[in-house]
Simulated assay, not measured.
Amino acid sequence: MRVIVNQVEYELPKESVITDALSLIEAKPPYAVAVNLHFVPKTKHGEYLLNENDQLEVIAPVTGG
């Protein structure tokens, strides 16, 4: 199935969850995840089923001063 992660297209098997997509892009914590512009808590990443053409945004915190 096709999903878009941070504006890049990827292929994942059907029945994939957010943690599968995070592994694919080798995401390093800390980060927040939104699917189709809706925040998904970290506690739900392992059970949130992705659908064809879902758009994920993996957002790292920004620090500065």
Rank of each mutant, 00 (worst) to 15 (best):
L24H: 06
P30A: 05
V62Q: 03
V40K: 02
T43V: 09
V35P: 02
V40R: 04
I25C: 09
L50E: 01
F39H: 07
P13V: 10
D20E: 09
N6G: 01
P30M: 08
G64Q: 08
K28T: 15
P41K: 12
Y48I: 02
V35A: 05
I18W: 00
K28N: 05
L22P: 01
N36A: 10
Q7D: 12
I59M: 13
Q7V: 02
K44V: 13
L56I: 10
K44L: 13
P29R: 13
N51V: 03
T19C: 03
M1T: 14
E47A: 11
G46H: 06
P61M: 05
I4D: 00
T19I: 14
L56R: 01
L56C: 07
V17F: 01
T43G: 04
R2H: 14
D54L: 09
K28G: 00
A60G: 11
S23F: 09
N53C: 11
N36V: 09
L49E: 07
L49F: 09
I25Y: 07
N53S: 10
F39D: 01
P13C: 05
I25R: 10
T19A: 00
N53F: 11
A27I: 07
E47Y: 03
A21R: 02
N51E: 15
Y48A: 06
N36K: 09
E47V: 12
P41Q: 13
I59H: 00
I4E: 14
V35C: 03
I25T: 04
L24Q: 04
V62S: 10
T43C: 08
A60C: 02
E15A: 15
M1S: 13
V5W: 02
V35D: 01
E52H: 05
Q55A: 14
S16R: 10
E26V: 06
L24G: 02
K14V: 14
G46N: 11
K14M: 09
G65N: 00
H45V: 05
N36G: 04
H45P: 01
L37R: 15
P41E: 12
P61S: 08
G46L: 07
M1I: 13
V5K: 05
I25M: 08
A27P: 09
L50H: 05
